[in-house]
């Protein structure tokens, strides 16, 4: 029983209850098509247009140049720029720390809030707050809390005797990334939490019960019962967290604008700067497509896990 779950070949809670054979009839397409149409029309079309733009030279402040086709020139420009390499590295740090932080925290808190205790509903609702606060306001509040003079973070740390006087956390190259990451993990964890809580609900209670009757300790119960069941949900959560962190613009832009000295300049920030500060739409969209390709690698690695698990039906 436990062994089977371990193979991780299932969607939440399906171990020994595989759905029957799939129906090979046309209604499947009818059901799927409306959503696909919405996606293709609303996101696909602008995406294609953006891709076409990346093959043209489009300097917004030089309209007299027209928009000549330049093939892959924009890609070469972007790839040659030292800022691009930096942005890849910052993006890697940004995305991976966000991913690990949000998943670990989200999982721990989900397990905590899944156990029975009075006030659990309230706790779940309170945990949702960071995610619900409009992101612009949340980010500005954090920026203020980090302020070297007026910020509560510094005031607290000074009172604890951990630092002597206020530090401009967002203003130093060594601390800016960490400071922005804390905000973003704080804001993103509730989303992971909700997904995992939903996933945990699908685990049949008699499984965990029988495991504890068998004398399994907390870790063993998690390792051999909870985790295998939760794995598909974790894979989805990981994939989505990767995507959303990767594309997170507000947190970094409003706190540091990618600074100081590009210490927090991710690909998304670089892309925005190319488009709205340098007015080079061609290079910006090329950077966007490259961003897309880099992320694709991640998603294929994660996503293959998911697809593989689904293929076995």
């Amino acid at each position: 029983m436990l062994k089977r779950g371990q193979e991780g070949s299932v969607a939440p809670g399906a171990t020994d209850r595989r759905p029957g054979r799939l129906h090979r009839s046309w209604p499947g397409y009818v059901l799927v098509v409306p959503a696909m149409l919405a996606l293709v029309g609303v996101i696909g079309y602008p995406l294609v247009r953006a891709f076409v733009m990346s093959l043209h030279k489009i300097i917004l402040i030089r309209p007299q140049l027209g928009q000549p086709f330049v093939g892959l020139e924009n890609y070469a420009t972007v790839l040659k720029s030292p800022y691009f390499a930096n942005a890849i590295w910052q993006t890697f740090v940004w995305t991976s720390v966000n991913l690990v932080g949000q998943l670990v925290l989200g999982l721990l808190i989900a397990l905590l809030l899944n156990s029975a205790f009075p006030g659990r509903g309230i706790a779940r609702s309170v945990m949702l707050i960071p995610w619900v606060i409009p992101s612009v306001v949340a980010v500005l509040t954090w920026k203020w809390m980090y302020d070297g003079q007026f910020g509560i973070v510094n005031s607290f740390l000074v009172r604890l005797g951990l630092i002597e006087k206020g530090v401009a956390w967002l203003g130093n190259t060594g601390t800016a990334m960490g400071a922005v990451l804390i905000e973003s993990i704080w804001k993103g964890t509730p989303f992971v939490l909700i997904m995992l809580l939903a996933g945990l609900q699908a685990i049949p209670a008699e499984l965990t019960d029988s495991a504890s009757v068998d004398g399994a300790n907390v870790w063993q119960r998690f390792r051999y019962v909870t985790f295998p069941f939760l794995k598909p949900t974790i894979v989805i959560a990981a994939t989505l967290t990767t995507i959303y962190s990767y594309n997170n613009f507000n947190a970094i832009w409003l706190m540091t604008e990618g600074g100081p000295l590009r210490a927090t300049e991710t690909l998304t920030i670089l892309t925005y700067k190319l488009a709205f500060r340098n007015f080079d739409m061609g290079s910006a969209t090329a950077a966007g497509v490259l961003t897309f390709l880099v992320l694709l690698v991640f998603v294929v690695i994660f996503g293959r896990q998911y697809v593989k698990s689904q293929m076995e039906f």
Binding site: I243, N247, T271, Y272, A275, F276, G288, L296, G303
Partner: peptide
């Protein structure tokens, strides 16, 4: 999912 991989500001 791929539709989510492109920087939104450019769309």
């Amino acid at each position: 999912l791929l539709s989510q991989l492109f920087p939104l500001v450019l769309l």
